[in-house]
Design a protein around this nucleic acid. Structure first.
Lengths: 267, 267
DNA sequence: CGTTATGTTGAGCTCCCTCAAGGTTGGTGG
DNA sequence: CCACCAACCTTGAGGGAGCTCAACATAACG
């Protein structure tokens, strides 16, 4: 059925098998307070089926029949829409702890391809399984709404990012978003984070050509704002990075970034 | 509380007051089969509070506390994100029948402003009211998931639209999307639809400056692909319009653009 | 150790933005 | 009813950011 390796149920292989399964729990815990029992149920349900995929492997192809959602445990993936010309367009990045495509819960076929951008481990959650979980733990259903709305909010920011601004602003804004999202699951700190995808895919995520992506990044490195070696992005000047983009983490709606409500006014 | 006119409960004023309330019902019916009883309950709940707003009036400001969702009955609105420089960026267009921002169901404060782009009539649905409705009619809860996933899918297309393509492709793709969405609620046919917003806002919705928007639209008119007068957009050459953009309505997931209906269960 | 994908750098060009200046429309108040 | 104003629409000229094409360097990978 799958063109990638399928490990047995309850697989705890890979680096930190146990820990990886706590990432989604930790992330949903950013939205709603999850009782220990619900956390445990959630974590257990992630063990049912776990798959390992290599880089560039399509996890779902657009149009495929799907009856499960994917939860990222390790590695990065993207949602991509087929384009008229050239490679598919990236419309979302999925980081460890993210649920890939909640639409699979209601929609019989995928509207996006999901492709691994690095080697990845992914948990499969059957639709019926989710229903059972939510029935037993209604707070999980609430958490899933949060997850869905958070993803929608992120897509909103992607639209805003692409609508306006220079290539430099787009790139720095995206890097700030990634740092904030990874921080929420404990995979980033002020000094940086692991960035296991290619420059090419990072550029595609903010609508830039590979060549220009390179130029933009090189300038950021020359100015000692970031460095990027061996799959690790170091943030050398966090303030400068934010200043370039005007990044405001409010839209991510994590607890730590929901401090004071701002009262910005409309036109 | 509101800086716009608030009509009494059960208001049936405006043009076709009754018919307008059927638009959301008709739209949700595109996703799941709604029993007559659920349809009626839904339509009734839309009558609780109805407000009328003028063009450019902010319905919600980003950061506002919200405990209700808005349902468009007449007129158009947009979700906008504050930008560093210049006017806010449009991240979504809300057409009659749409639910403005489902995130209000879980999130205590709005992450986007919602602004009327034309005179509009909007129904307010209290969060508690929605809970009651969903409890009594679980299929409505399912329909809301569909609505949320449809909105997310549309945002995906917006990202793809902005990522690639010429200004002409962006504009024609957006026009195709609007036609398809309006058609789903019976407000468009092959000949065109009412387009009550300004050229400026239409351009902002696909990341173009007002001047260039004008040039793109003029070219489309010169080539007899569209005409746009008095708030009505006429589609003169539907095939050409689609060919420019490579539009594929699949992502909208309406029944008519889908192969087989499904009977999936909601979380 | 070849092969392929990715990273890097350069030159030229194009599409779209910027700035600028009318023209048109709709609404408001005298 | 008309003058006035504020949006919006329209059109032009010029410049620059980023795309395209092309070549090579480097790293990943069997």
């Amino acid at each position: 059925m799958f063109d990638f390796d399928l490990n047995g149920a309850g697989d705890d292989s890979g680096v930190n098998g146990r820990q990886a399964k706590q990432l989604p729990v930790r992330k949903l815990g950013q939205f709603v307070a999850l009782p220990a029992a619900s956390q445990q149920a959630l974590e257990q349900s992630l063990s049912a089926r776990i798959v390992t995929v290599g880089r560039s492997v399509p996890i779902i192809a657009a149009g495929d029949a799907v009856n499960h959602v994917f939860v990222m445990l390790e590695g990065w993936a993207c949602s991509a829409r087929p384009a008229m010309e050239g490679r598919p367009l990236i419309v979302a990045l999925h980081l460890p702890g993210d649920i890939c495509d909640l639409s699979a819960l209601v929609r019989p076929q995928a509207d996006c391809s999901v492709i691994a951008l690095s080697p990845a481990r992914v948990a499969l959650l059957e639709r019926a399984f989710v229903s059972t979980l939510v029935e037993a733990h209604p707070v999980c259903g609430h958490a899933l709404w949060w997850e869905a709305m958070s993803a929608a909010s992120i897509r909103g920011q992607w639209i805003a990012r692409l609508s306006l601004g220079s290539a430099r602003a787009r790139m720095t804004d995206l890097l700030c978003e990634l740092a904030a999202r990874l921080r929420a699951v404990g995979l980033a700190d002020d000094t940086g984070f692991d960035l296991p995808i290619s420059q090419l895919d990072l550029g595609r995520s903010c609508g830039l050509t590979p060549e220009h992506t390179n130029r933009v990044l090189r300038k950021l490195r020359d100015r000692r704002i970031i460095s990027w070696e061996k799959g690790h992005l170091a943030i050398l000047d966090r303030d400068a990075l934010r200043a370039e983009s005007g990044f405001d983490p409010g839209y991510l709606n994590f607890r730590e970034s929901r401090a004071a409500p701002d009262r910005s006014s409309a036109p």
